[in-house]
Design a protein around this nucleic acid. Structure first.
Lengths: 343, 343
DNA sequence: CTGAAAGCGCTAACAT
DNA sequence: ATGTTAGCGCTTTCAG
């Protein structure tokens, strides 16, 4: 039962007693149409509940589908959620819709998603690339006019536009803030895998800040975590070192949650913290969490704007847009550092 | 330039010297094919970078597109992000992809999104309905076999499956928790608009809890907020009443952020709080935030499973799945209540 | 102003 | 094991 075929252009045409083309003309405001036919057609459309089949239309017109394929690591990560929202906001009036999927930072899943998206003839492809994924297979698509934008991280083997945060400078600023408040042993808990672009950049900023202050780079103080629970564990481990850090730098928002949660559990208010990326409730913590805030709205906006420009024929040089981060001092970076070391 | 037409089945066929149908057979593992032709075809496919046009395929096969249309209020809301992730997880091996959009709780936007989705011949429609949106126009689609699932809230004018949290019981439990700890004046800050299903249900739970405890329902203690900032303002207003509440109940996650932030700003640790829906860092607050946790994973899973069953021909009665909430006691509900009123 | 025919890229149904 | 024809629902092209 039920398997009612949905009405087609031909059905509407038959209903009114005109040709399919006439209906098409009315609906697309293509060519002329007498006021009377127009009305009759629109009435029939409403009566039958006709909705033009967009796939059939696209196939005939030959143009790309009016969708943006967006691959992010995790649909549940608030950072990427904010980016997605911003992308949607800036493309909405162009009539583009988001086709989304999460890669779980697995290159195979990333590839599977982009392949499906490409098979759907998306108008724009946006990817937060996973470590280990190659992107040279996208070359032909790009050459054929498909705008490709890498988000949050650069891609691999494809020269195309990308939008990233000022990871290195931001991390540098955050760590320098800790140093300025007297900290000399600062733990770093970064992304997993360690080859991840954002981790490398943020770690580089961390190292530079140490160097500038004449502080040693102590390998045992640098670790990683994949999820909040892992970050909590890593925090506990760092604090149980023989010569533990007096401050921690969180490499991303999820790590920040893990660190803060573990410090609260252990009632360790003496450990200073600065996090890369802002998190909800940061200002309600005690001490309030100092962060190097990213700007997901601007990241999404810039990515979408660039892609739209490309769609409109912009053939200028490939660009990497670096969206500035901003240190928001809230207190957690100023926790008491221990006094000068006794010789 | 660049407008290189992407290769088609015919191109591949020509390249190999076989018919289009043969290529189609090889790619879809339909019918037989000699090992040799298979290899040649696959080689040519790889060489040309051919990717079958899914839209063309779908149109010919006549079936729906392998996408799920998902309309949520806000792509940036962590609750709906978690729901979306869960939906994706449960439909991935069916080869379904998510087409997502946010309604911003605007019925017109909801309608525009669902219309585009329907024009794309999605396989499944999932909507968190906005207040004021009608859904009777979906009747024919549902009758024609399109699974429609309402998420988080029931729809309007369409009998179909829906998945919601145990809003009323959950709110009741949360408020009862406050009452059990001696609170007699409990503020309620709910969703906007006030006609929103979740707000009504949660408010009903609040009222029942009061009634059962023999406490009066005091209109001035009930208010609403649309965003975090609004919730902070509402909190400040409630606390400045002549006879202010000693405890607050947050009607959703965003409101919770606003309440907690405002209380921290005002350094009001004496106000007890229970929130509907869990939030990040709840356990790191002081006091840790007691919540009525929703189960977004289960909501997404149940919605997806139901829709898939319908897709597979399940014609059983329409069902409303209520996903249980769980009170997670962390401390904020036990803040000191004032002693017995002096006559 | 309107219609008929052809064709977008693909596959179902029949050949062979 | 492979090819041919027709046609999905729509729009383009060219005639009326």
């Amino acid at each position: 039962m039920a398997a009612n075929r949905r009405p087609t252009l031909a059905d509407v045409a038959r209903e009114v007693g005109v040709s399919a083309k006439t209906v098409s003309r009315v609906l697309n405001e293509d060519g002329p149409a007498s006021a009377k036919t127009r009305e009759q057609v629109l009435a029939a459309v409403a009566r039958l509940g006709f909705q033009p089949n967009l796939m059939a239309r696209n196939i005939r017109v030959g143009g790309p589908d009016t969708t943006i394929g967006l691959v992010i690591p995790d649909l549940g990560n608030p950072f990427f959620g904010a980016v997605a929202r911003s992308i949607e906001d800036t493309v909405r009036d162009r009539g583009l819709t988001l086709l989304m999927g999460s890669s779980a930072d697995d290159p195979d899943r990333e590839r599977a998603l982009t392949d499906t998206f490409l098979a759907r003839r998306i108008s724009i492809l946006m990817v937060a690339p996973t470590v280990g994924a190659g992107h040279s297979h996208l070359k032909t698509h790009r050459a054929a006019g498909l705008p490709v934008v890498f988000l949050d991280r650069p891609g691999n083997g494809l020269a195309t536009d990308s939008v990233v945060s000022s990871n290195r400078a931001g991390a540098h600023e955050g760590v320098a803030h800790l140093i300025a408040h007297g900290h000399r042993r600062i733990g770093f808990i970064g992304d997993v895998p360690t080859r991840l672009y954002t981790r490398r950049e943020r770690l580089a900023g961390y190292r530079t800040a140490l160097e500038e202050a004449g502080l040693p780079y102590d390998r045992p103080l640098v670790t990683n975590a994949h999820d909040q629970q892992g970050a909590s564990t890593a925090t506990a481990q760092l604090l149980s070192l023989a010569d533990p850090p007096t401050a921690l730098f969180a490499g991303n928002n999820i790590v920040a949650l893990g660190i803060v949660t573990e410090l609260a559990r252990a009632k360790r208010k003496d450990v200073a913290v600065v996090a890369f990326d802002d998190v909800a409730l940061a200002e309600a913590l005690e001490p309030a969490l100092t962060v190097v805030a990213q700007d997901p709205e601007e990241i999404g906006r810039a990515a979408a704007a660039t892609a739209l420009a490309r769609l409109d024929g912009d053939r200028s040089r490939v660009r990497t847009i670096t969206v500035p981060t901003r240190l928001i001092v809230r207190g957690s970076g100023e926790q008491p550092a221990p006094g000068p070391q006794e010789a």
